[in-house]
Protein backbone atom coordinates (compact mmCIF):
# COMPACT_ATOMS: atom_id res chain seq x y z
CA UNK A 1 0.00 0.00 0.00
CA UNK A 2 2.86 2.36 0.89
CA UNK A 3 4.19 1.93 -2.64
CA UNK A 4 0.79 2.85 -4.03
CA UNK A 5 0.65 6.00 -1.94
CA UNK A 6 4.14 7.12 -2.97
CA UNK A 7 3.50 6.46 -6.65
CA UNK A 8 0.11 8.18 -6.55
CA UNK A 9 1.60 11.15 -4.73
CA UNK A 10 4.39 11.40 -7.28
CA UNK A 11 1.86 11.35 -10.12
CA UNK A 12 -0.12 14.15 -8.47
CA UNK A 13 2.94 16.32 -7.76
CA UNK A 14 4.12 16.03 -11.34
CA UNK A 15 0.56 16.84 -12.58
CA UNK A 16 0.47 13.51 -14.40
CA UNK A 17 -3.21 12.62 -14.78
CA UNK A 18 -2.46 9.53 -16.86
CA UNK A 19 -0.13 8.02 -14.27
CA UNK A 20 -2.62 8.78 -11.47
CA UNK A 21 -5.40 7.05 -13.41
CA UNK A 22 -3.18 4.03 -14.16
CA UNK A 23 -2.46 3.57 -10.44
CA UNK A 24 -6.18 3.69 -9.70
CA UNK A 25 -7.03 1.24 -12.50
CA UNK A 26 -4.24 -1.17 -11.57
CA UNK A 27 -5.38 -1.30 -7.94
CA UNK A 28 -7.92 -4.03 -8.58
CA UNK A 29 -7.19 -5.83 -5.33
CA UNK A 30 -8.97 -3.17 -3.27
CA UNK A 31 -12.44 -1.69 -3.68
CA UNK A 32 -13.00 1.94 -4.65
CA UNK A 33 -13.77 3.16 -1.13
CA UNK A 34 -10.63 1.47 0.22
CA UNK A 35 -8.60 3.11 -2.55
CA UNK A 36 -9.89 6.52 -1.48
CA UNK A 37 -9.32 5.83 2.22
CA UNK A 38 -5.93 4.16 1.90
CA UNK A 39 -4.32 5.87 -1.10
CA UNK A 40 -6.03 9.13 -2.09
CA UNK A 41 -6.50 10.61 1.39
CA UNK A 42 -2.99 9.75 2.68
CA UNK A 43 -1.41 11.13 -0.52
CA UNK A 44 -3.36 14.38 -0.26
CA UNK A 45 -2.57 14.63 3.46
CA UNK A 46 1.16 14.30 2.77
CA UNK A 47 1.01 16.92 0.02
CA UNK A 48 -0.89 19.29 2.33
CA UNK A 49 1.61 18.74 5.14
CA UNK A 50 4.45 19.28 2.68
CA UNK A 51 2.95 22.64 1.69
CA UNK A 52 2.65 23.65 5.34
CA UNK A 53 6.33 22.77 5.83
CA UNK A 54 7.42 24.69 2.73
CA UNK A 55 8.34 21.55 0.74
CA UNK A 56 5.57 21.75 -1.86
CA UNK A 57 3.84 24.68 -3.55
CA UNK A 58 0.21 25.75 -3.53
CA UNK A 59 0.06 25.14 -7.28
CA UNK A 60 0.81 21.45 -6.59
CA UNK A 61 -1.79 21.26 -3.82
CA UNK A 62 -4.41 22.76 -6.13
CA UNK A 63 -3.61 20.58 -9.14
CA UNK A 64 -3.44 17.44 -6.96
CA UNK A 65 -6.93 18.21 -5.63
CA UNK A 66 -8.29 18.79 -9.10
CA UNK A 67 -6.89 15.56 -10.51
CA UNK A 68 -8.24 13.57 -7.57
CA UNK A 69 -11.65 15.19 -7.78
CA UNK A 70 -11.92 14.27 -11.49
CA UNK A 71 -10.86 10.68 -10.84
CA UNK A 72 -13.08 10.17 -7.82
CA UNK A 73 -16.12 11.69 -9.54
CA UNK A 74 -15.80 8.95 -12.15
CA UNK A 75 -15.64 6.07 -9.73
CA UNK A 76 -17.90 7.60 -7.11
CA UNK A 77 -20.33 10.07 -8.72
CA UNK A 78 -22.13 12.73 -6.66
CA UNK A 79 -25.03 11.16 -4.75
CA UNK A 80 -23.56 7.65 -4.94
CA UNK A 81 -24.75 5.62 -1.92
CA UNK A 82 -21.14 4.72 -1.18
CA UNK A 83 -20.32 8.35 -0.47
CA UNK A 84 -19.92 8.88 3.22
CA UNK A 85 -22.84 8.96 5.68
CA UNK A 86 -21.94 12.40 6.83
CA UNK A 87 -23.23 15.53 8.53
CA UNK A 88 -24.76 18.04 6.15
CA UNK A 89 -22.09 20.56 5.32
CA UNK A 90 -21.29 23.55 3.14
CA UNK A 91 -18.30 25.66 2.29
CA UNK A 92 -18.00 29.36 1.52
CA UNK A 93 -15.62 32.28 1.17
CA UNK A 94 -16.65 34.85 3.74
CA UNK A 95 -16.73 38.43 2.54
CA UNK A 96 -13.73 38.38 0.25
CA UNK A 97 -13.03 37.47 -3.31
CA UNK A 98 -10.25 34.95 -2.95
CA UNK A 99 -11.65 31.56 -3.87
CA UNK A 100 -8.59 29.33 -4.23
CA UNK A 101 -8.58 28.06 -0.64
CA UNK A 102 -12.26 27.16 -0.86
CA UNK A 103 -11.75 25.46 -4.22
CA UNK A 104 -8.92 23.33 -2.86
CA UNK A 105 -10.83 22.26 0.28
CA UNK A 106 -13.95 21.53 -1.79
CA UNK A 107 -11.94 19.35 -4.22
CA UNK A 108 -10.15 17.57 -1.42
CA UNK A 109 -13.30 16.75 0.55
CA UNK A 110 -15.06 15.48 -2.57
CA UNK A 111 -11.94 13.45 -3.42
CA UNK A 112 -12.20 11.97 0.06
CA UNK A 113 -15.75 10.79 -0.57
CA UNK A 114 -17.69 13.62 1.09
CA UNK A 115 -20.51 15.64 -0.45
CA UNK A 116 -20.88 19.30 0.43
CA UNK A 117 -22.64 22.40 -0.84
CA UNK A 118 -20.58 25.21 -2.35
CA UNK A 119 -22.03 28.59 -1.36
CA UNK A 120 -19.41 30.68 -3.19
CA UNK A 121 -18.71 34.11 -1.65
CA UNK A 122 -21.16 35.29 1.00
CA UNK A 123 -21.65 37.97 3.61
CA UNK A 124 -22.65 36.99 7.16
CA UNK A 125 -26.41 37.67 6.90
CA UNK A 126 -27.02 35.64 3.74
CA UNK A 127 -24.76 32.87 5.01
CA UNK A 128 -26.81 32.53 8.20
CA UNK A 129 -30.00 32.30 6.13
CA UNK A 130 -28.55 29.56 3.90
CA UNK A 131 -27.24 27.60 6.88
CA UNK A 132 -30.66 27.76 8.51
CA UNK A 133 -32.63 26.86 5.38
CA UNK A 134 -30.30 24.03 4.33
CA UNK A 135 -30.04 22.65 7.90
CA UNK A 136 -26.27 22.72 7.72
CA UNK A 137 -24.36 21.03 10.55
CA UNK A 138 -20.79 21.99 9.56
CA UNK A 139 -19.93 25.23 7.83
CA UNK A 140 -16.40 25.50 6.42
CA UNK A 141 -15.33 29.13 6.11
CA UNK A 142 -12.35 30.16 3.98
CA UNK A 143 -10.85 33.67 4.10
CA UNK A 144 -7.74 35.43 2.89
CA UNK A 145 -8.15 38.88 4.43
CA UNK A 146 -7.90 39.70 8.14
CA UNK A 147 -11.08 41.77 8.21
CA UNK A 148 -12.96 38.83 6.68
CA UNK A 149 -11.56 36.49 9.34
CA UNK A 150 -12.82 38.86 12.06
CA UNK A 151 -16.34 38.58 10.62
CA UNK A 152 -16.48 34.94 11.75
CA UNK A 153 -17.22 36.37 15.19
CA UNK A 154 -20.42 37.98 13.85
CA UNK A 155 -21.32 34.72 12.15
CA UNK A 156 -20.94 32.84 15.42
CA UNK A 157 -23.05 35.41 17.32
CA UNK A 158 -25.85 35.25 14.77
CA UNK A 159 -25.90 31.43 14.70
CA UNK A 160 -25.99 31.35 18.50
CA UNK A 161 -28.81 33.89 18.59
CA UNK A 162 -30.87 31.55 16.41
CA UNK A 163 -29.91 28.51 18.54
CA UNK A 164 -28.50 26.79 15.47
CA UNK A 165 -26.15 23.96 16.37
CA UNK A 166 -23.55 24.43 13.66
CA UNK A 167 -19.84 23.68 13.86
CA UNK A 168 -17.75 26.48 12.34
CA UNK A 169 -14.50 25.29 10.78
CA UNK A 170 -12.20 28.04 9.53
CA UNK A 171 -9.11 28.18 7.37
CA UNK A 172 -6.99 30.67 5.46
CA UNK A 173 -3.96 32.89 5.78
CA UNK A 174 -5.01 35.05 8.78
CA UNK A 175 -5.57 31.92 10.85
CA UNK A 176 -2.18 30.47 9.86
CA UNK A 177 -0.33 33.68 10.71
CA UNK A 178 -2.10 34.16 14.06
CA UNK A 179 -2.64 30.79 15.76
CA UNK A 180 -4.99 32.26 18.39
CA UNK A 181 -7.31 33.98 15.96
CA UNK A 182 -9.71 31.05 15.35
CA UNK A 183 -10.50 30.83 19.05
CA UNK A 184 -10.82 34.60 19.37
CA UNK A 185 -13.54 34.65 16.70
CA UNK A 186 -15.39 31.68 18.21
CA UNK A 187 -14.70 29.00 15.59
CA UNK A 188 -14.90 25.33 16.63
CA UNK A 189 -11.79 24.31 14.70
CA UNK A 190 -9.10 25.65 12.38
CA UNK A 191 -7.42 23.82 9.53
CA UNK A 192 -3.90 24.86 8.51
CA UNK A 193 -4.16 22.75 5.36
CA UNK A 194 -7.05 21.54 3.25
CA UNK A 195 -6.40 17.93 4.21
CA UNK A 196 -6.85 18.75 7.89
CA UNK A 197 -10.51 19.38 7.08
CA UNK A 198 -10.98 15.62 6.57
CA UNK A 199 -9.76 14.94 10.10
CA UNK A 200 -11.92 17.69 11.59
CA UNK A 201 -15.04 16.31 9.89
CA UNK A 202 -14.22 12.82 11.14
CA UNK A 203 -13.92 14.29 14.64
CA UNK A 204 -17.37 15.86 14.31
CA UNK A 205 -18.75 12.53 13.07
CA UNK A 206 -17.35 10.56 16.00
CA UNK A 207 -18.50 13.19 18.49
CA UNK A 208 -15.04 14.29 19.64
CA UNK A 209 -15.58 17.85 18.38
Amino acid sequence: MENNISNFMEALLSINRIAARQILESSTSIDRISFIENVVIPALERIGKGWQDGVFALSQVYMAGRICEELIDEILPPGDPDRKDQPKMAICVLSDRHKLGKTIVYSLLRSSGFDLLDYGTMEVEELVERIKNDKIEIILVSVLMLHSALKVKHLKEKLDALNLDVKIVVGGAPFRFDKQLWQEVGADAMCSTASEAVLVIKNVMDGSL
Binding site: W51, G54, F56, A57, L58, S59, Q60
Partner: peptide
Protein backbone atom coordinates in the same frame (compact mmCIF):
# COMPACT_ATOMS: atom_id res chain seq x y z
CA UNK B 1 7.17 32.62 -3.89
CA UNK B 2 7.72 28.92 -3.28
CA UNK B 3 4.56 29.01 -1.16
CA UNK B 4 2.67 29.29 -4.45
CA UNK B 5 4.93 28.09 -7.28
CA UNK B 6 7.54 25.36 -7.39
CA UNK B 7 11.16 26.47 -7.81
CA UNK B 8 11.28 24.64 -11.13
CA UNK B 9 8.25 26.55 -12.42
Amino acid sequence: STTVTTKEM
